[in-house]
């Protein structure tokens, strides 16, 4: 146990370094060539000129959003795997992010809805719906949940919401915009979105850390948890509420970014073992690192154009997913 904690501290340190390096690159480089001195000035010696605006209001909030969203996806994946005891559970495989995507599509297409709600609330409503359904499935028979059945249910939910969103986009001639929503990306991150992410998502992530001990108990199995005096249904419900909020703020800013919540907790687990008190904070850091580096690749590989960031997370995610499937069964 001691060695796991030590390992965790070391891993946390390395991940923080990587994240910091990622942020520096994200702020220093971009599609516009800005001298390094200007970049530094824009942080410490700010003037209202275009280059400094680009750094200050373009690159910095985007980098922070990547850190936060990556972390949120990582921690919510870890939580989901803990309470469902399914090692490949993940918000985008479960259809939760697609529910939010559909809601965002609905709002973007219909100006009347847009006036009523902002994207965030729409995303919240959408992911609450799909998250609620996932919750129902996972509550149904927690002792005997088959993994492939769970994943198929998620795929079906995802397909359903994307179908609804496609119908909307076809009827309003916005098909290609839909592709951008589905593909996800951080290009529209602003300081406002960072503030919103930090407030709502940050609070929920903290709350998640508080219940990590109870997630440990649920993760032992239904009967064991009950005999230890825990009520697994309650923990599962709390975790799901947190996941829903975290996912919806993430999707409202960055769309549908897959696989981070799947691979990061898994790699973390192989280092520190089945202790969610360690897995969850480290998954946050690991998610941050993965997303900021993926986004750096997305922004810089084909300047001035962007590559969809989901391509990079999938390129890393799919092989690891398949390797896990082969190893686990």
């Amino acid at each position: 146990m001691v060695s796991a904690t030590k390992k965790a501290i070391l891993a946390g340190f390395i991940l923080s370094l990587l994240a910091a390096l990622g942020i520096i690159i994200a702020v220093a480089f971009g599609s516009k060539n800005i001298p390094l001195s200007t970049v530094i000035d824009s942080i410490f010696n700010y003037e209202d000129v275009l280059d400094m605006q680009v750094v200050r209001n373009g690159r910095i909030p985007r980098a922070l959003a990547a850190i936060l969203i990556g972390g949120f996806l990582g921690i919510s994946g870890a939580m989901m795997q803990g309470v469902t005891r399914i090692p490949i559970a993940e918000p985008s495989l479960m259809g939760i992010t697609q529910g939010a995507t559909f809601a965002v599509a609905l709002v973007s297409i219909n100006p009347d809805f847009y006036a009523m709600t902002e994207n965030t609330f729409a995303a919240l409503a959408g992911s609450a719906t799909s998250g609620g359904l996932v919750l129902l499935f996972s509550m149904q028979n927690p002792r005997n949940m088959s993994i492939s059945r769970f994943v198929l249910a998620g795929t079906a939910l995802g397909t359903f919401f994307i179908s609804l969103a496609s119908t909307l986009s076809i009827l309003s001639n916005r098909t290609q915009e839909l592709a951008f929503w589905v593909a996800g990306g951080l290009r529209s991150a602003t300081w406002d979105s960072v503030a919103m992410l930090a407030a709502a998502g940050g609070l929920c992530s903290l709350a998640a850390l508080f219940i990590s001990g109870r997630i440990n108990i649920v993760n032992l199995g239904e009967d064991m948890a009950i005999s230890l005096g825990e009520r697994p249904g309650v923990v599962r419900f709390m975790a799901m509420i947190l996941i829903i909020i975290i996912c919806s703020v993430s999707v409202s800013v960055a769309g549908n970014i897959a696989f981070i919540g799947l691979i990061v907790p898994h790699i973390v687990r192989s280092f520190v073992g089945e202790n969610y008190k360690l897995i969850m904070p480290l998954s946050f850091l690991g998610g941050s690192v993965l997303l900021i580096w993926a986004d750096n690749a997305a922004r810089l590989l084909n300047r001035p154009y962007e590559t969809p960031v989901g391509l990079f997370t999938s390129l890393i995610g799919v092989p690891i997913f398949i390797w896990m499937v082969r190893r686990n069964s």
């Binding site: 516009k32 060539n33 280059d51 373009g58 690159r59 290009r187 154009y305 962007e306």
Partner: peptide, 24 residues
Amino acid sequence: LPVVTYEGLASIDADFIFAVGTPD
């Protein structure tokens, strides 16, 4: 059409701009 972000737009130095878009 080539698609750029705000940063890409900031790299284009134009005197006059025609901005087309929905009200939102």
